[in-house]
Amino acid sequence: MSTIDSTHAPGMPTTTVSTSDQQRPIALMLGSFFGRGVCRVRLNLCAALITRGYKVDLLVVSGEGEMRDDVPKGVRVIDLQASRALKAIPKIAKYIRREQPIAIISAEDHLNVATLIARKLSRRAPPISVSSHVLHHIDAGKPFWTKRYWTRFALRLIYPWATSRIAVSSGMADTMAEVTGLQRNNIDTVFNAIVTEDINKRAQEACPHPWLEDQEHPVVLGV
């Protein structure tokens, strides 16, 4: 497990936090630094927490990926150096015992399950918020030897351990309730934290793509 202090920073206004909160970190969980929406949302959240005076640790299952250089200044990156989330459980548990974070924020179902198991093994009780960004509808009728069956089983068994459960849309929350068996009112909807000043600046830039410069043919953009 390796630790790296980032040297990159966006500028945002700061607020004051208590001395006790400054001494213990908020831990964010991430699978890798490869360019995906979850990674971008996590980095934006890290920046927002840092500018508000919190100490932030970013635990990454594998520290590979092209977005590693985008980590905000002041965020401590802890590379768990594991090939998959389940293999990182012992290191996550050790981190929780050693650092005693104020809270843990995790995303993606496989990583959420691993983090919740690690907290149980650590015998510590920091609050954990888990979120689902893409939750596939898992058919309960699948044979018990399939990955989907055991994924659904794990979510139903372990998600109740979380302090809070977050979906990135109302429809996502409905699906999470159906898949996990949780009551719908036990799931909160929090939209992705992606609107930053950098996005506003990039929106004003030119987009010199030949498809967009050609005024004769319509372009369909799917997001």
Rank of each mutant, 00 (worst) to 15 (best):
R148P: 15
H136I: 12
T163H: 07
R156D: 06
K142H: 13
D109W: 05
K147D: 15
I128Q: 03
V134Q: 10
R165G: 05
L157D: 07
R148I: 12
H136Y: 13
I117Y: 05
A125W: 09
Q100R: 13
A103W: 00
V134I: 13
W145N: 14
E178V: 08
R152Q: 12
A118S: 03
S170K: 11
R119T: 14
S164F: 02
V130Q: 04
I187P: 00
S122D: 10
R124P: 13
P127Y: 02
A167T: 11
S170Q: 12
L155Q: 07
T146E: 02
H110N: 12
H133N: 15
F144Y: 10
T180H: 05
I104H: 00
E108T: 09
P101M: 01
P160F: 04
F153Q: 15
F153G: 09
L121Y: 02
Y149C: 08
S132Q: 10
L135N: 01
K147R: 12
L121T: 04
I187V: 03
M176F: 02
P160H: 05
T175C: 07
S164T: 13
K120V: 11
A140M: 09
E108K: 07
Q100Y: 06
A162N: 01
K120N: 12
T115C: 01
W145Y: 15
T115P: 02
L111F: 01
W161M: 15
D139H: 07
H137D: 15
A114H: 02
I128Y: 00
E108F: 08
A125E: 14
R165M: 08
V134T: 14
R123L: 07
D174W: 06
N112S: 03
L111T: 03
S131I: 01
E108W: 05
Q100I: 11
V113D: 03
K120L: 13
I105R: 04
K147Q: 15
S132N: 08
T175Y: 07
Q183P: 12
T175H: 08
A177I: 08
Y149Q: 06
A103R: 02
I187R: 04
I117L: 10
I105L: 01
G171Q: 08
K120F: 09
A177S: 09
T115E: 01
M172T: 10
R165N: 11
